[in-house]
Amino acid sequence: MNEFVQTIKQTFKEVDLVLGWVRSPAAGVAVPACFHTPAQADDAVFDSTCMHNLVVHLPRLAGKKVGIVAKGCDARSIAQLVAEHAVDRSRVIVIGVHCPGMIDVKKAWRCFGFGKRISDAGGRVAMEGKTVAREEVLLQKCRGCRDWEPVICDVTAGGATKAATAPPAEPAGIRKRFAAMSPAERRQFWQDQFSRCIRCYACREACPLCFCRDQCAMQARDPGWATAAIDASQSWMAQLIRISHMAGRCSGCEECERACPVGIPLMLLLEEQNAVIEELFGYRAGAGPEVKPPLLTFNIKDDAWGES
């Protein structure tokens, strides 16, 4: 029995259940799992396809004492939830793992075909005998990762050694095109993107910080920020409600974009917003369970950036 499984099993002394991953028998990649007994945890895995942010389940398990396997970036979501009183720190055991950088499974499958086994060793990702450099298929957020060490952690369960982080990606594809757009083109871009929104709210359901759930303003009829119509203008407003409410809270886990069935590049907005917040307030979401998020506090010397 490996050390990772052993650590999870030991956690059961203190918790009711543990959130982690098992390998999907069909596709051979990791899928989220909830272990209720130590025996179930025998199947627990941690590899470079464990890209999901399991923290989304934490606020929904408020009544239970929960163990959760968390990568560095996931730990930021936990810290942010604790800072926002949405998660009781004393009822969570964070099993920190050191992440090697996660593979964008969708991207890999697009390269090699769906369901193909992925092997990841020695800086190369191999599938069906073909190999590519890891950087090619890494998740966008893993490029230039700053969160190898979990910010909040109760037990460490091994994982990868700290290798040289893949450098931040040069804007490519949609990012490159977006960066070059004029204001008018951007406006048109978002109008086109949001015209495809089917208002399924998968983005919100996948987001670990969207714990308002049923009360969410992007869906509520009262007071009527946006109607429920499948309509570019209404979806524009609804989506911006979520983006605005993520200000200073989004840790950039990319779950919303991954969940979007029509592929709206939500991270373009969130990344920009996170960058602005870091520039203005020197804050990254999930800085720590005790740190006040920037929009819930102020500094009378804020005018360093001057009156607009």
């Binding site: 308002c212 009360q215 969410c216 303003a217 509520a220 009262d222 007071p223 009527g224 920020w225 409410h245 929009l295 819930l296």
Partner: peptide
């Protein structure tokens, strides 16, 4: 203005009125 789902509202200046 700080409450994301808007469940705290100020009488006389509710989201509804301002919208």
């Amino acid at each position: 203005a700080a409450c994301p789902p808007g469940v705290i509202s100020l009488s006389g200046y509710t989201d509804k009125q301002l919208l």
